[in-house]
Design a protein around this nucleic acid. Structure first.
Length: 210
DNA sequence: TCATTAACACGGG
DNA sequence: CCCGTGTTAATGA
């Protein structure tokens, strides 16, 4: 596991910190589609993503979802950083986008390392910064782009985090992530197919020239 | 004009 | 048969 940790975080953390992470953290594996944290649950630790991708979702009053952003290797969840500031319940839902591996760090250690390691402080600040940027991107997309452009962005992101141009997903699942109806997704996907940008099969979309 | 909702037919597993 | 898909008609913002 040392090798994976070093590959993902070695360029920014010193050896002693990596060793401490390995010593105090617990390795977790979550397979595709499973929940990692639910809205309202207490956050007990901070995940450092080693392998795979996680999608972060928000939920409205009716229980409808909206995709906020994806986390990839080397990322952490900004929500858990809030724990250090007294807020302990999760405001978001995290679902494994594909098979993921991460290390859970106890909250107490986070605080200790903030004083002990400069690289850790930088990492925490940078994570906040990155997540905020991604969130602003998402807000821009929702506020200023039409659904067809949102869909294209979604497909591109999804292909990127999975490192695969074949997207394994139903129209309904996409509709949930983008908070719209399946009719719209089906229609827009058909349009993209006619434009030669994708090709459609059951449960699968192949990206061509997006 | 475009999204949503309901409804229906088609077809593959 | 069940589920995912493609389409249409009615309604509303």
């Amino acid at each position: 596991m040392w090798k994976e940790l070093e590959e993902a975080y070695g360029f920014q953390f010193e050896k002693e910190l990596l060793a401490e992470i390995l010593e105090t953290g617990s390795i977790k594996k979550v397979s595709a589609g499973n929940r990692i944290i639910e809205i309202g649950e207490y956050v007990t630790g901070m995940p450092l993503l080693l392998e795979g991708a996680i999608k972060i979702l928000r939920e409205d009053n009716d229980g409808d979802e909206l995709l906020l952003y994806f986390l990839e290797r080397g990322d952490t969840c900004a929500m858990t950083l809030n724990c250090c500031l007294g807020q302990t319940k999760s405001e978001i839902r995290a679902v494994a986008e594909n098979d993921t591996t991460f290390i859970m760090i106890p909250i107490a250690k986070m605080e200790e390392w903030t004083g002990k390691y400069k690289s850790w402080r930088n990492f925490v600040f940078e994570s906040y910064h990155n997540r905020l940027s991604e969130m602003l991107d998402t807000i821009d997309t929702i506020a200023f782009l039409k659904m067809d452009e949102r869909l294209m962005r979604y497909l591109q992101e999804k292909a990127m985090v999975n490192a695969n141009d074949f997207i394994q997903s139903t129209h309904q699942q996409i509709a949930y992530d983008l908070h719209t109806s399946r009719v719209v997704i089906s229609r827009l996907l058909k349009k993209l197919e006619n434009e030669g940008k994708i090709s459609l099969q059951r449960n699968q979309i192949k990206l061509k020239n997006l």
